[in-house]
Design a protein around this nucleic acid. Structure first.
Lengths: 345, 345
DNA sequence: CTGAAAGCGCTAACAC
DNA sequence: GTGTTAGCGCTTTCAG
């Protein structure tokens, strides 16, 4: 016999389909006699009835499905966030439909269309660009959206982000205490909000320590090792720094590569700090000092925020910032050389 | 105005809903007059009509949704496979519903129930244990299932795996050519098929080189750095090896850690080879020699196999093995010490 | 407290 | 080639 339907359960329990539906609906408890409820549950159990979300969704136009847009599923920075989203959603009877945008606005728009087809109850967007039109459009249409990790310029949308300033301030204080005074920054591409946020945190931290802006910032064309290498090479050619804050662990590894090419050693010649605490960073050489953020928790929080908004559409948009923390490992150490020239040997 | 429905399109085009449906169905091209088809398409375009997969699914009982079970979304080994699945499915109008089992059979069963509720057209399972009951059960019910990466003992199921023997044989040949004769193996937990496959490949490669079984195998309790460290420590205490094949890159990093604790150096004292070519392994110290597998391609292939079976349920189950390749980096080098004793200093 | 009837959006079998 | 009708599985008025 095929999957039993609600009608089968009703017949087995000797009641009407509608009654069976009500008996099985936890929200309607008390409105059906205890004995009928028991009969229905027994029959459902016996037949192995599982409700069909399709029929349910068609009738109620709630699919208990959330669209999740991320830059890339295979990117270690986002995977734990997605896992947090998955866990929280499922705990509440929702499922996630994931789509990787590859940071391509056109692809993002296409994917959103595809997901619309499935009548998602809402969206979590981790792939937003600072000038993201798609997200704007969704919000204009009154679709439930929560941003995570990345924000959109000038958009007052519900969001969960990390408070990157905490970790970066701590990292710079740590470098300052080790004697560093010329601290550079390798940022990511400027079209995503985290790049700006981290840059500002860096500038502010330097200022509050009374260090003049050292004109030691370069931006990589992407959050990759190779782009980090290229950017740090440009910086080294221009400005001798004794320490560098990278906008991301991959950029930090790019800094390692550039340093090696220059015959410089980390941390003896230059200290490097990363961001994100990706897997294996503790086993690099040297183990990378970096900033952690509660990725799983951020995913959970974004899911929770979205579900709250689905249940109460009048909620004002709020932004939640989760604390980051600096982790000192061995890529940051005391200054050991003068910073007044390149000593490639 | 809310999302336009097929009825709206039909009215706008001045035809019946059924006609509009047919005009929009690519499979029925030619059975509707060109002029009507044009009218319908124009109206659909103008109103911004997107078909509702819920209604469609309810009617056709095809949801164009595939359940995907993986151990952990945040595990770098599986993420690229999932990305391959995602890409291929979407290209063919399907979506994936992902669920992380954490290698817990009970959780796997629960997740499957949850996904059944959504009437998936089939399943791709990357989380199978060697004695997986859930997968067996699914197949018994005639549900469309394709395994990827991991197999189930004694089950003739459609599957896409990597041909690990190629990479391991090449790795061992490489070590042999460098002079190694006592080559150990750190395997993963024995409840997953890849552990067995890699162990057998290791034994066979040694045999075909005429090396006696060196009694130098230890199994880690999980594919983690810490478990690898513990297992390799056990091995070092028991048997001095000049090289080791780890069942996975994280285990290989565990070997690095154990070696460091013993005051041994890689590759000068012991060569280490990993498996999977995870992100950042090329930037470890030393850069890790490892075995790559075409993860994205495997994901695509699994998706392709599943869709083929959905379209033709009578297909005989086939198993596809994708080639792996050894990548020499710097963790493997010539033997430099006698292997007749521990020289911890 | 429960039954009857309607309908969510869509397509397939059957007319003509 | 196109309209008519029915119904996928479910919930929700509306009666009683």
């Amino acid at each position: 016999m095929d999957k039993p339907t609600l009608a089968d359960v009703a017949k087995a329990a000797g009641v009407h389909r509608a009654t069976a539906s009500r008996a099985l609906n936890p929200a309607l408890v008390g409105r059906i006699s205890a004995v009928t409820t028991a009969k229905v549950h027994e029959a459902a159990e016996r037949l192995g009835y599982v409700p069909d979300l399709l029929g349910q969704g068609l009738r109620t136009s709630k699919t208990r499905t959330i669209g999740v847009l991320i830059p890339d599923l295979a990117n270690p920075v986002f995977a734990p966030i997605v896992r947090g989203i998955e866990d929280h959603l499922r705990e509440h009877g929702y499922e996630a439909l994931l789509a990787s945008t590859d940071n391509d606005p056109h692809r993002e728009a296409t994917l959103l269309d595809v997901l619309q087809t499935r009548r998602c109850d809402g969206f979590i967007v981790a792939s937003a660009l600072r000038n993201d039109l798609v997200v704007r459009h969704l919000l204009d249409q009154g679709v439930n959206v929560v941003l995570v990790n990345r924000l959109v310029d000038g958009l007052d949308a519900p969001a969960v982000v990390s408070d990157d300033a905490i970790g970066i301030t701590a990292a710079i204080q740590h470098l300052f205490d080790l004697g560093h005074r010329v601290i550079g920054h390798i940022g990511g591409p400027l079209d995503v909000s985290v790049t700006t946020t981290r840059l500002e945190a860096y500038e502010k931290a330097l200022a509050s320590l009374g260090i003049d802006a050292p004109d030691a910032v370069e931006h990589a064309t992407g959050y990759t090792v190779e782009a980090g290498r290229a950017a740090f090479t440009r910086l080294l050619q221009r400005r001798p720094v004794s320490a560098v804050i990278a906008g991301n662990d991959l950029l930090a590894v790019g800094c390692y590569v550039a340093l090696a090419e220059y015959g410089l050693r980390c941390p003896d010649d230059v200290s490097v700090v990363g961001f994100n605490d990706m897997p294996l960073t503790a086993h690099l050489f040297p183990p990378l000092s970096t900033v952690t953020m509660p990725q799983h928790e951020m995913g959970c929080a974004a899911a929770r925020m979205l579900l709250a908004r689905i249940n109460d559409p009048d909620l004002a948009p709020t932004m939640m910032a989760m604390p980051t923390a600096f982790v000192a490992r061995e890529s940051s150490g005391p200054t050991k050389r003068r910073t007044d020239g390149n000593t490639t040997d």
